[in-house]
């Protein structure tokens, strides 16, 4: 198992080294990541959403649906803990009609 794990890790390392040449330069303002969608968030974020903090503007307004998904994830995890170690642990599905 350790040998396969090590081999897989080496393969992954090779893949990432190969890809690192294609990534844009670090920290430039005209990299595609910072030049296409996000200038609107910065330039018009406060006027369109009223939030000074632009991360809040993105999280709560532009991409508010993702935040709904995120709160659902927390809810799901809490409910999962309930099912796994709370009420769910005391009830056995086996022996029930399948």
């Amino acid at each position: 198992m350790k040998a396969t794990a090590f081999a897989l890790t080496l393969v992954a390392a090779a893949v990432f080294i190969h890809a690192s040449s294609a990534l844009p330069a670090f920290g430039t303002a005209d990299a595609p990541a910072s030049a296409h969608v996000s200038p609107r968030y910065i330039e018009r974020g406060y006027e369109e959403t009223g939030a000074h903090n632009l991360v809040t503007a993105v999280l709560a307004d532009y991409r508010g649906y993702d935040t709904l998904g995120e709160t659902t994830v927390i809810f799901t995890a809490g409910l999962a803990a309930l099912l796994i170690i709370g009420a769910g642990a005391a009830w056995s599905w086996e022996g029930r009609p399948r």
Partner: peptide, 19 residues
């Protein structure tokens, strides 16, 4: 990705109910 994780967490809990 967010919805993938919602469905994944739900499935882990539902599978764990079996036995």
């Amino acid at each position: 990705y967010v919805f993938l994780e919602i469905s994944s967490l739900a499935v882990y809990a539902l599978i764990a109910l079996g036995s």
